[in-house]
Write a protein that binds this DNA or RNA. Structure first.
Length: 567
RNA sequence: GCGGCUGUAGUGUAGACUGGUUAUCACUUGAGCUUGCCAAGCUCAAAACUCGGGUUCAAAUCCCGGCGGCCGCACCA
């Protein structure tokens, strides 16, 4: 069923899930405020995710700043690659992506900077496709929000476009925290920012949004996974980039190379399970594999969990194999050692040639530069130095010729007890806001203009409505007592004594509250209250003292009929 | 960023073309009466012309611009 998203957004605004941000000043597109119910629903989704990743799977949760200095995103590639290069027609104002216009003029136009693209377009005499007008010089639009740290000119910085980098730059710390073992994972739940050119569709494309990201660091040559055995006969609906869409068992998918490896398959399954746990409709979920051309600059394989909503199929989660791209990039840019140490079973005796600088000769010859020259020499491969009468090395960007008397190539015995490896990263990256929107979309049901949100108890912002049938005769005080018991026991509850009982049930149904407890005149006689189920409108009576216990059982999945013992 | 359409109480709307008294209606919300289990009724109340400029004696209404929304293009790590 395709529903009108406007209807859902209207409910969200009316009932306090969602409001356009800064509305009294005219609002800003792509920014939303969460109202009390939205904030609660979002928390419930995030906490369920933590239960899965942190408690069950043993990932380490960290929390990093939203602002980061420029070098971080230089290294990650976002400063250069997370942007679009535009040209504009000077006469009709139409804009084009410069790399699209350059298609066919260069093997990979997307890899060029704006100056090269400008030259290329000029050289090929490219004009406006619409009106043949002159085009402007290419302009670059980076999708990151730029800011600065500190007074005056300060230090250039950006708001993070993903939380992932925080986990990559903390690799060494988290690796040590986990007592230096692979594989291990880190997670982060938090805000990220993208200065979208044209945010649309409510919560689907936001400029500030929440992500739940997990980075699993694995051995680059071992992508088997111990947990895979337990889930291998489960099936998921897949839309591979090659071949037909099909629902396929995980072990078959890995065997047939539809999914690249066991780790990726396992975390796709975990993602699928999470989606079902919070209440997304399995009939409206699928995994779609990225085409090679749509893959991010860092990914080698990527599957999106997509949900069908009033906006069509939308991406909720990306599960990507990022290879060693990010960790290697931060090693290269920062010089930090972000490797894991793989211990051999037995330490090995290794004989190898090394280039050994002779400081007695280097000193007089190179003076202050001698130390750097020596370091450069040590980095040379022995083969390239052996038997030469001089070698070229690069010091501070300058080529230096070093005569043979300054070094010797000698054979050295070493005990090697292991090796440094750069881990590969499997990344499940969840868009919280999108998941929440899809959840509301899938939960929305309407019968003769009566709206019920069939949210699962696990995520429902309010678990119980508590009503006195009449706000008098002491019923209201009893209801207040039950309400206090429930909130005391940790359940989000809602006390409502206004309007007819039917209206109060309707109010709770519309925001997805799974149960309502009503205090009536029998309560005064026999101490029982009714418990009503949202989806069936069925009721059962239980002792009023047992209400918190009953709700606890119901949240855990017990049916209404199981409450008989609490009568 | 471009083009088309569009913006009236918390929500959904009438009024606009053809400018003119106190801006329509419903739901919602609050108070009271009533009501003894599924959006009942009555009374009262609260609540809006997206913002700025222009035309005019007079603008919710016509014109221009900003902001927001929807759709299409483009974009989407």
């Amino acid at each position: 069923m395709q529903m009108d998203p406007q209807e859902l957004l209207s409910l969200c605004k009316r009932r306090g899930f969602l409001w356009p941000a800064y509305d009294i000043y005219g609002a800003v597109s792509g920014l939303y405020d969460y109202g009390p119910l939205g904030a609660a629903l979002k928390n419930n989704i995030e906490n369920q995710w933590r239960r899965l990743y942190v408690l069950q799977e043993g990932f380490y949760e960290i929390s990093c700043p939203v602002v980061a200095p420029e070098p971080v995103f230089k290294a990650s590639g976002h400063v250069d690659a997370f942007c679009d290069v535009y040209v504009e027609c000077t006469s009709c104002g139409e804009t084009y992506r410069a790399d699209h216009l350059a298609a066919g003029m260069h093997p990979n136009p997307a890899s060029l900077g704006e100056h090269e693209l400008g030259k290329l377009l000029k050289a090929n005499g490219v004009k406006c496709v619409e009106c043949k007008g002159e085009l402007t010089e290419p302009k670059r639009f980076n999708l990151m929000f730029k800011t600065s740290i500190g007074a005056g000119k300060g230090k250039t910085a950006y708001l993070r476009p993903e939380t992932a980098q925080g986990m990559f730059v903390n690799f060494a710390q988290v690796y040590r925290y986990g007592r230096e073992r692979l594989p291990f994972g880190a997670v982060q739940v938090g805000r990220a920012f993208r200065n979208e050119i044209s945010p649309r569709q409510g919560l689907i494309r936001l400029r500030e949004f929440s992500m739940m990201e997990a980075e699993l660091f694995v051995h680059p040559e071992d992508k088997t996974w111990p947990g895979f055995r337990k889930v291998k006969d489960r099936a998921m609906p897949l839309v591979p980039s090659k071949g037909d869409p099909r629902t396929i068992r995980l072990d078959e998918a890995v065997k047939a190379k539809v999914i690249g490896n066991e780790v990726l398959a396992y975390y796709m399954w975990l993602t699928y399970k999470f989606a079902l746990d919070i209440g997304l409709d399995p009939a409206r979920l699928r995994f779609r594999q990225h085409e090679k051309t749509e893959m991010a600059h860092y990914a080698s394989d990527c599957w999106d969990l997509e949900a069908e909503t009033g906006y069509g199929w939308i991406e909720l989660v990306g599960v990507a194999d990022r290879g060693c791209y990010d960790v290697q990039a931060h090693i290269d840019h920062s010089g930090a050692d972000l490797t894991a140490f793989e211990r051999f079973d037995e330490p090995k005796e290794v004989e190898q040639d090394v280039v050994k600088p002779d400081f007695g000769e280097l000193g007089p010859l190179f003076k202050g530069k001698a130390k750097k020259v020596a370091e450069a020499l040590s980095r040379l491969s022995p083969e390239s130095a052996k038997g030469k009468d001089k070698v070229m090395v690069e010091v501070d960007g300058e080529k230096v010729s070093v005569p043979a008397k300054c070094f010797e190539v000698s054979r050295r015995k070493e005990k090697v007890s292991g090796r440094k490896i750069v881990p590969h990263v499997i990344e499940p990256s969840y868009g919280v806001d999108r998941m929440m929107f899809a959840l509301l979309d899938h939960a929305y049901s309407k019968k003769d203009d009566y709206v019920t949100l069939r949210l699962k108890p696990l995520v429902a912002p309010i678990k119980v409505g508590v009503f006195p049938l009449m706000p008098k005769d002491g019923l209201d005080e009893i209801a207040q007592g039950i309400y206090n018991d429930l909130t005391g026991a940790g359940f989000d509850s809602y006390l409502d004594d206004s309007g007819s009982i039917g209206r109060r049930y309707a109010r709770m149904d519309e925001v997805g509250t799974p149960w309502c407890v009503t205090v009536d005149y029998d309560t005064k006689n026999d101490g029982t209250v009714t418990v009503r189920d949202r989806d069936t409108a069925e009721q059962t009576r239980i002792k009023k003292e047992k209400v918190p216990k009953a709700i606890e059982a119901l949240v855990k999945g017990a049916g209404l009929s199981s409450l008989n013992t609490l009568r």
